[in-house]
Design a protein around this nucleic acid. Structure first.
Lengths: 200, 200
DNA sequence: CCGTTTACATTGCGACTGTATTGGAAACGG
DNA sequence: CCGTTTCCAATACAGTCGCAATGTAAACGG
């Protein structure tokens, strides 16, 4: 066996550089040379780990998904035992909002990818299932959380997810501050579950 | 006076070609030559009316805004006299959703611009005021429409706008069909105004 | 020690980009 | 008829792009 290097680590390093470039110059600035420069490497190395630009892109997209997944499960774990559905949802969703600079950077890249995949339906199809699963989970939580009788859990789930996405967009655009977004998220949960009952 | 041509018309023609290119190949494919080809003109002509690419971009962005504005006021006019706030909102917002192929195309371009402006804060600032005005209008309608007492009109307006944006995104991604989005929009209005009272 | 395999670095190529420049056709005032 | 101004076409240029090809250093099995 010749010279061995941790393949996964290198790819992660490169993907990280890609994210930095994309986050502050946009996806269109993501080129082999720019990413290489951001990673402090040579273009040849990037090319060694990703034979094509598209390959690099789709990998970066998967990294974003994994990061969000990790964020969510970390937040859920911090909640402890068996939280009430409403608290669970609030923890999950607020974690997905771009409330600090780190998540804002990720969010900008995610937004760029959204536009990117809008023109490449094949890539978008992969996200399709994920959305469906997420909607199912949200609906189940809404059902379990004892929503007001007049709300249809499935429609409420669609609305809730849409609110999340929309709030994220407007946050990224800087159209209002984080607290406004959080307030709107809470208001949405209020609409679904009824107003929060503060313990005396 | 030498050879005279309707300046506005030419720019509109070019912007239209730009939209077509952007709608089915993404903003990154928008180059002088591509746009010229799509417009059936020479690159030189495009250059004559837009001295720089950015100038062309910002013009196209303004075209999108005008189209949406026109769509909304047309829909509102079709509503006649003095509609109830809820009907007004529903007409306005559903008109902004990418429900048919024409609006889907516009939506893809708008999404691309969203990502585009996320990296150019100066351009985004222009949209800032528009969002604030829209939020104010929505809140006023919600107030006037006799929302349930437990809803804060301002927060509900933020939520409603976010739902709109989010539904648009997911529609563009093809994650669910138009009727699902419309149902979610109605459900959101139900949450705000209370369930619709069907006339016997 | 040797050959093979992996990990990179470098360079080159053709295509494309935005922009500047130049040139000519058309239309009008004088 | 002439000059000027507008419209647009064509071309030139420097830079970047993705990608392929080539070269080299290192590490291991035999």
């Amino acid at each position: 066996m010749p010279k061995r290097v941790d393949h996964r680590e290198r790819r992660a390093l490169i993907a990280d550089a890609l994210m930095r470039v994309a986050a502050d110059q946009g996806l269109e600035a993501v080129s082999l040379r720019h990413v290489a420069a951001a990673a402090g490497a040579s273009p040849g190395m990037v090319q060694h780990y990703f034979r094509t630009r598209d390959e690099m892109m789709t990998f970066a997209l998967s990294v974003i998904r994994e990061r969000n997944e990790a964020r969510v499960s970390r937040a859920v774990a911090a909640l402890g035992g068996s939280p009430r559905p409403r608290e669970l949802l609030r923890a999950m969703l607020s974690e997905l909002l771009p409330l600090d600079e780190e998540r804002r950077a990720d969010g900008r890249v995610a937004l760029a990818f959204l536009a990117y995949t809008a023109v490449r339906p094949a890539v978008a199809a992969a996200l399709h299932d994920e959305t469906a699963a997420l909607l199912g989970f949200l609906a189940a939580q809404i059902r379990a959380g004892g929503a007001a009788p007049r709300v249809d859990p499935d429609r409420a789930a669609v609305g809730l997810l849409a609110v999340l996405e929309g709030l994220g967009i407007y946050l990224l655009g800087g159209h209002y501050p984080p607290e406004t977004a959080l307030a709107a998220l809470d208001a949405q949960l209020d609409l679904i579950f009824g107003p929060e009952t503060p313990k005396s």
